[in-house]
Design a protein around this nucleic acid. Structure first.
Length: 291
DNA sequence: CCGCGGGCCTGAGAGC
DNA sequence: TGCTCTCAGGCCCGCG
């Protein structure tokens, strides 16, 4: 599921329950996640205070009083659910916890705030990892990541430089976390539509020979920032698994202009939206608007 | 180094 | 109802 807007939505939902609170009890019910949890995972968290809950790309980072950082990733199907003092799930009344859901509850945090934070992930592409804060810069999961797309330092010059000389498509380049960190299939498709650029265009064509940005790079950066801002405002996109921490749904999926809309009319020219496959993933775009 | 394809897992939905 | 097939928001690894 989760691309940057969904992870940011989860972060904002969990922060009030976790920041300033301690782990009173931690259950690691399943350790065979994408990267196996260490044997002492629960023990290393127990009693630690969460100093802050941050985000880098699609990773959640909990800063702990022990000097460790808890890195969490949602993979494709991961989600967090938040309960307080044994209450049932807050938020959307359409949500019911089913036995099927509970079997994928792999990690449970009991917090001194009275909150219970449950990590659920059917496909187990997500995971967690504890690293020392002093070694965070050398952490392999984070080391190669490109700039945060919503940061001030991410601009047309930076994107053009990263794409200059790239033979691959602009779709593949934007999906590459080393170029820009946090976009996935949905928001790459949506950003390219907003920038009116074809996903098949060679990545290097947003830069001139010297690697300087052209007008396409400017449009693309604007489109990326805009779609991410809009999606965060909507609480992310809920397709299959994503929910806000209180169990309610994000609603940005209703604002998709091309993603998952093959055959439907383009919102701009009314032509047919097309689905193609690039590097093994679906791409949705309007062949007449996006050049 | 670069780009691509396969694999990791489970579940949902379509078609028969 | 149930089987089989395809597809899914991410990321890592190995191959050429």
């Amino acid at each position: 599921m989760p691309e940057l807007p969904e992870v940011e939505t989860v972060r904002r939902g969990l922060a009030p329950a976790m920041e300033g609170a301690r782990f009173t009890r931690v259950e690691a019910r399943r350790r065979d996640l994408r990267w196996p949890l260490p044997k002492d995972f629960a023990q290393r968290l127990q009693g630690q205070k969460v100093e802050g809950l941050g985000r880098r790309a699609k990773y959640l980072l909990a800063d702990l009083s022990s000097g460790d950082v808890l890195i969490m990733h949602l993979g494709m199907s991961g989600s967090f659910r938040l309960r307080r003092n044994g209450e049932t799930f807050l938020g959307d009344p359409r949500y019911f916890e089913t036995a099927k859901d509970a079997k994928h509850d792999h990690v449970v945090f009991h917090m001194s705030s009275g909150a219970t934070v449950t990590f659920n992930d059917p496909r187990r592409f997500g995971s967690m990892k504890l690293v020392q804060r002093a070694k965070l810069e050398r952490e392999p999961l984070l080391r190669g990541l490109g700039p945060e797309p919503l940061g001030n330092e991410f601009d047309a010059a930076m994107l053009a430089k990263a794409c200059a000389g790239k033979k691959t498509s602009i779709k593949a380049a934007l999906s590459d976390q080393r170029v820009v960190a946090g976009l996935g299939n949905i928001y790459v498709c949506e950003a390219l539509f907003r920038a009116r650029l074809s996903p098949k265009r060679q990545a290097s064509t947003i830069a001139d020979r010297n690697g300087e940005p052209n007008e396409r790079a400017v449009a693309l950066v604007d489109a990326i920032k805009a779609v991410l801002h809009d999606a965060i405002k909507a609480g992310g996109s809920s397709l299959r698994d994503h929910r806000k921490a209180d169990g309610s749904l994000g609603y940005f999926q209703h604002s998709f202009r091309v993603y998952d809309r093959a055959g439907e009319p383009c919102p701009h020219c009314k032509g047919k939206i097309k689905r193609i496959v690039q590097t093994g993933r679906s791409t949705f775009y309007c062949p007449s608007c996006q050049k």
